[in-house]
């Protein structure tokens, strides 16, 4: 089970795309990469999870932690590319009410 984390940084945006499975084994990796980034003041972080095939509640814990950090440092936080299963996870836990998830405009012209 592998996890790959790609980080693209521009002046205005920190784009992070995650691929693979996020569970108890891979979540610590994710936490180590994301936490230092979330502590920068005023960071604008966008996370794309379209390449994530599985995520359990441990992964959710990492994102909530990162979200809280970003907010505490006056930043912006967004999660995109959630599959139906992941979207449901964010809805059940009430997190979709406080975290901006899947808000990008869908149905783009191909």
């Amino acid at each position: 089970m592998n996890l790959s984390i790609n980080i693209k940084e521009t002046d205005i945006l920190l784009e992070i795309s995650v691929e693979g499975e996020i569970d108890a084994y891979t979540a610590p990796q994710l936490r180590e990469r994301l936490f230092p980034l979330s502590e920068k003041n005023g960071v604008n972080m966008e996370i794309n999870l379209s390449g994530v095939s599985y995520m359990d509640s441990t992964g959710l814990g990492v994102f909530v932690g990162v979200f809280k950090n970003v907010k505490a440092n006056n930043g912006q936080f967004k999660i995109n590319g959630l599959s139906g299963r992941l979207q449901r996870l964010f809805e059940i836990t009430g997190l979709s009410d406080i975290i901006d998830v899947n808000s990008q405009i869908e149905g783009e012209v191909k």
Binding site: V64, K68, T93, G94, L95, D97, I98
Partner: peptide, 9 residues
Amino acid sequence: AKGLLLGVE
């Protein structure tokens, strides 16, 4: 039932 995880807010 709707409600946020404990410990977030």
